Simulated scan of single mutants.
Amino acid sequence: MTNRLFSLLMLALIAAGLAGCQSAPVRDPAYAPMRPVIPPPAPMGNGSIYQAGYERSWFEDMRARRVGDMLTIKLAEKTDAKKKATTAVKKSNSNSVTNPTILGSTPQFNAPGLLPLASNNNNNLGFSLESEHDFSGEGDSAQNNELTGDVTVTVIEVLPNGYLMVRGEKRIGINQGNEYVKVSGIVRPADIDSTNTVLSTRLADPTIVYKGDGAVADSNVMGWFAKFFISALFPF
C-alpha cells in the first residue's frame, strides 16, 4: 500500500513538472488566416487579349481590398473609467394613540397579577410607537487600460458595400509562457492609409483579446477558495 501511494505521488509530481514546462503557442481556429480565392481558369478561344477578372493595374496602391489580402491593425486602445456613488437614507416614524373616551369615561383595567387599581398604576388603551432607520453607503471605482502594438490580419470577407471583415492572431512565446493578441472587426476602405494600416479605433464591431498562459499568467490567477470569499455565495 505504501509503495502504491509513493508511485501515485511521484506520478503527480511528474505531471505537475510537465505542466509547468513551456508549450508551443496554440492556434485558435476562429482567428485562422484566410487564403486568397483561386480564380477560375480563363476562358479560351474567345478572341480577346485581355480577360475580365485577370487584369492588374500598374498604378494601383497595395491596400487590402480582396479576400486573403493582409492589413495591419495599429492597436491604440486606451480606456479611463471612473464611477462614484453615494447613498444616504434616513427614515423616522412616530405613532401615538391616546386612551379613548367611551360614554363619557376613559376605560381602565387591571392586567392579571398587577397591583390593585391605583391612580399611578392605571392600564388603559393608549399606546405609542417610535422607530428610526438610518443607512449610509458610499462606493468608488476607477479603471485604466492601455494597449498598443501592431497586428497584421487578413481579409476574410468583402461585404456588398465594399467594407472588409478582417481577423487575425499574434502568438508570442516568452520564457515560461505564451501571449496571444486576437483582433477581428469590420474595416472601411477609406480608413486604410497609404501604408496599408488602420487604427483599431476605426474598427466596427471590434473584438480585441489580449491574454497569456504559463507560469506568469497562473501566478496572477486567484484560487477557487479565495474566490469563494468575494463571491455572492459567501453569506457574510
Rank of each mutant, 00 (worst) to 15 (best):
A32N: 02
M34S: 08
M34F: 04
P39F: 13
P39M: 12
P40D: 10
P40L: 11
P40K: 11
P40E: 13
P41R: 08
P43K: 07
P43C: 12
G45K: 01
G45T: 04
G45I: 03
G47I: 01
S48I: 11
S48A: 14
Y50E: 07
Y50H: 09
Q51R: 04
A52P: 11
G53D: 08
E55F: 06
R56K: 15
R56H: 13
S57C: 08
E60S: 14
D61E: 13
D61Y: 11
M62K: 12
R63H: 07
A64C: 12
R65H: 13
D69M: 10
M70W: 07
M70G: 11
I73H: 03
I73T: 02
L75V: 05
L75Q: 04
E77A: 01
K78Q: 05
D80P: 00
K83G: 05
K83R: 04
K84T: 12
A85Y: 10
A85P: 00
T87S: 15
A88M: 08
A88L: 14
A88E: 12
V89M: 12
V89H: 08
V89K: 05
K90G: 12
S92L: 13
N93L: 15
N95P: 00
N95Q: 14
S96C: 02
T98P: 01
T98A: 10
P100A: 02
P100S: 02
I102Q: 02
G104P: 03
G104K: 06
P107Q: 08
P107T: 04
Q108A: 10
Q108V: 14
Q108R: 13
Q108E: 11
Q108K: 12
N110T: 10
A111P: 02
G113S: 11
L115D: 06
P116Q: 03
A118L: 04
S119Y: 03
N120S: 09
N120K: 07
N121K: 10
N121I: 07
N122K: 06
N122Q: 14
N123H: 09
G126D: 06
F127P: 01
F127R: 03
S128E: 10
D134M: 11
G137T: 01
E138C: 00
G139R: 13
D140A: 11
S141M: 06
A142C: 00
Q143D: 12
N145R: 13
E146K: 11
L147A: 05
L147R: 01
V151I: 14
V153I: 10
T154K: 03
T154R: 08
I156W: 02
E157I: 01
V158A: 07
G162S: 09
G162N: 09
